[in-house]
Computed example of a mutant assay.
Amino acid sequence: MTTEDFDQQLVRWRHHLHRHPETGFEEKKTSDYVASVLNALGLEVHRGIGGTGVVANLKVGDGQGTIGLRADMDALAITEDATGRAHASQAPGRMHACGPDGHMSMVLGAAQLLAERRDFNGTVRFIFQPAEEHGRGAKAMMDDGLFERFPVDEIHGAHNMPGMPAGHFATRSGGIMASEDNFVIRITGRGGHAARPHMGVDPLVIGAEIVVALQTVVARSVDPGMSAVVSCTEFITDGIRNAIPTHVTIKGDTRSYAPEVQALLERRMREICMGICQAHGAECRFDYTHEFAPTVNWPECVPTALAAATAIVGADKVDANVQPMMISEDFGAFLRHVPGAFVFIGNGDAGQGGVPLHNARYDFNDTVLPVGARYFAELARIRLPR
């Protein structure tokens, strides 16, 4: 296959996947398609891991080393706004607005390159993970025995990044993406007539006080040398214009990199919410859940990622110490169990490539596909030399 044919094949895969998005744990047609490509390449394919997950194995030579290359599969519940886009989503209310269609195509491309050239010695496992967007798929695959059934010495992943020049790479040792914890604060007061507020306990005013008070957690409780974010994103009441509500629900999330910061945020937020409600005579229920683990690259694996990226695009297009981001990725759950590294690949800083993730007009930059495919294949060659 010529370079041009290979590049066009990547685009065909990506456009097909983009037209047929499926959300977390519903990726049945997606996994069917991925498995069919892997089977056609002659790989040993395993289905149904963690629900809809797929693992394909390619062994060459007698090497004992094993590397995992991972791609996410699930779409978002967003209606695509893409007038004139020939490969736009054909599934109402769903689209690949974060790039898993591209990530899958890059890992499929690496599988094709390695299957054709067989220029390594060992085993490569191609891991296609469901339900990344809500932080459930990695755990589901591991609960289903992923690393017991398909052990790896290390695992690697990548995510496109709008705003970075197309095809550039960025990574770092240590924390590169944050944890995400979700919280729900339920306040129960005593509703009544808006003209007689003294007869009730107003949960709306109490909730407003809590939202403001929570902004002090990062400013006054977290070490300034550590990173954290607390965001209240929903404020829901059962009131009407002339009635003070009885119930208020506040929802949101927090981001951080260190387990001790996660614990601090939960403790201080709970204390503030309970204290304010008690002071006003209201009831409070505070729920705090851990959704995403922080993505923390293993220092011993980052040099391999840097070497592979440099071999593909040159040192001038590789950032070895990128600023950590407060976004979250389910890949972090894998890194709590096995060594590995995660990189960002620039999707473009202008035009279509620069449209933000999770935007209805987002699209993966097709020019990045061969760069990512060759990067993943190069990782295998470096870690599993002949």
Rank of each mutant, 00 (worst) to 15 (best):
C301N: 09
P92D: 15
T188M: 02
P385Y: 11
L214Q: 05
D72V: 02
D349I: 07
S231C: 13
E180G: 08
A333M: 14
N359F: 08
G189M: 01
P299F: 12
P245S: 06
F364N: 02
Q129V: 06
H20A: 02
V313I: 11
G281H: 03
F334H: 10
R125T: 07
A40I: 06
L335D: 10
P203Y: 11
R381H: 05
R19W: 07
V322H: 08
L357E: 12
H156D: 14
V54F: 03
M177F: 11
Q278N: 13
G99D: 13
F147S: 02
T304E: 07
W13C: 00
R374F: 03
P224D: 15
R118H: 03
G102V: 09
A320L: 07
A373S: 14
R136Y: 02
A178Y: 06
D202G: 05
A309E: 09
R383P: 12
M164L: 14
D363N: 15
A77Y: 03
I276T: 11
F128P: 06
A194I: 15
V124K: 00
E154Q: 15
Q262C: 13
S105G: 09
D330C: 04
N321T: 09
F342K: 03
R149Y: 03
G348N: 02
P303D: 13
R14G: 08
A228F: 13
K251D: 01
I176F: 05
D349H: 07
H15A: 02
R149E: 00
L76Q: 08
R255P: 07
F344A: 03
A333K: 10
D144R: 09
D119K: 06
L41M: 14
N39S: 11
T79P: 00
A86W: 03
I236M: 15
F6E: 10
H159Q: 11
Q64D: 14
G252I: 01
S328F: 10
H198F: 06
M106I: 04
G239W: 02
E271W: 02
S89H: 11
H280E: 14
L384I: 13
I187C: 01
R381C: 04
V355F: 08
A213Y: 03
I127K: 13
V60Q: 04
V60A: 04
F150N: 00
R241N: 08
Q215M: 05
I155F: 07
N39P: 00
Y375C: 02
D119C: 02
M325A: 15
N57A: 10
F235N: 12
G225L: 15
F292N: 06
V124W: 00
P197T: 05
A178Q: 08
E209N: 14
A333L: 07
R190V: 12
A140W: 01
M274A: 13
K28W: 12
L58S: 00
A138Q: 05
V60T: 10
G93D: 11
T237L: 06
M199C: 11
D7I: 01
P324M: 02
E148K: 12
R361N: 13
A75P: 13
T310E: 15
D349W: 01
D202I: 01
I244G: 01
A243I: 12
E148M: 04
G372D: 03
F169E: 04
P162A: 07
M141C: 05
K29Q: 15
V261S: 05
C273S: 15
I244W: 06
P197H: 02
A40K: 14
G314F: 10
